[in-house]
């Protein structure tokens, strides 16, 4: 069976972790796709490429960048963009995505997705960066909505409007991260459903689901941390249902980066997403039979 690497199927996938390389090949779980963090595979050779090559032959791939610093003040790091190009040429993915965030400044990489002020100037810069990425890679990218713990007093745009403008101006797509919507909405006392509805959800090419940790702000109110280290919460599942009712069935990733459980546990969580995808596909499919009757 040959794998279609041109489209990400409207099914559930999981983050590919090195600890699961062998289990993936041995058990070949029934998954829609796998996703990797681009930066982890920016090495010349060895086991990571040995396993990724074989897994690539069996599953559609989504490549997710965490280090381009698209929201950064400075020009994009050309070396990093080149490394991405090399990786995407080696494993042409069905999707490539990055974040509305910055992670590098004056040569320091902070290993985090940091918040930016939403202004006319930052919109211009973000759009130039996205144009540059799409041109260098010769493909559309998806832009992920962020999770944040603070906002900026300098912002003159709402985050959702900013996302929409960036997507309209550059022709990039949306990576709709449902967990991020929930985390940010709780942290900033907004309604997550209104946030979701204000996003350009029809541009969604992929959805992310993940678990969050709960911290406490100084006033005792919950502060949610986008930790990706536990099961998906009921609130995020329910927001996911709302998202599917708006966008229809869209490829959905179970994103896990910390406390990574056994492969079958991740696959079971993917199965829960897949059931929701199937039922929404049922609803949105035109019912030809009813016309005949």
């Amino acid at each position: 069976m040959t794998v279609d690497h041109n489209t990400l199927p409207a099914r559930a996938g999981i983050s590919l972790k090195p600890m699961h390389f062998q289990a993936m090949l041995t058990h070949q779980p029934d998954l829609g796709f796998v996703e990797i963090h681009a930066e982890n595979y920016m090495v010349d050779g060895g086991p990571y490429h040995f396993y990724l090559q074989q897994i690539y032959e069996q599953y559609p791939l989504s490549i997710h960048g965490v280090g381009l610093s698209i929201g950064g003040l400075e020009p994009l790091d050309k070396n990093h963009l080149n490394r991405l190009k090399v990786l995407l040429d080696r494993y042409p993915p069905a999707r490539f995505s990055e974040h509305l965030a910055w992670s590098s400044h004056q040569g320091v990489y902070f290993n985090d997705l940091l918040p930016l002020a939403y202004t006319d100037a930052s919109l211009q810069r973000v759009c130039e960066h996205i144009d540059q990425v799409q041109q260098a890679l010769g493909r559309q990218m998806l832009l992920e909505n962020p999770s944040t713990y603070v906002e900026s007093q300098e912002s003159t745009w709402r985050e959702t409007d900013f996302m929409q403008a960036a997507i309209e101006r550059t022709g990039c797509g949306l990576l709709l991260d449902v967990n991020n919507i929930y985390v940010s909405s709780v942290n900033h006392h907004q309604d997550p459903v209104s946030y979701l509805q204000a996003l350009p959800y029809s541009a969604a090419g992929e959805i992310h689901l993940a678990g969050f940790a709960v911290d406490q702000d100084v006033d005792g109110s919950p502060l949610l941390i986008d930790s990706h280290d536990r099961d998906i919460s009921d609130e995020v599942w329910s927001l996911y249902d709302q998202a599917l009712s708006l966008c229809g069935p869209v490829a959905t990733l179970i994103e896990r980066d910390g406390n990574v459980p056994a492969l079958d546990v991740l696959c079971a969580e993917a199965q829960m997403a897949e059931q929701r995808l199937l039922s929404i596909a049922d609803i949105s499919r035109p019912k030809v039979a009813s016309y005949a009757g």
Partner: peptide
Amino acid sequence: PPNSPVLV
């Protein structure tokens, strides 16, 4: 601090 996102 790191000067590259390739943390390996």
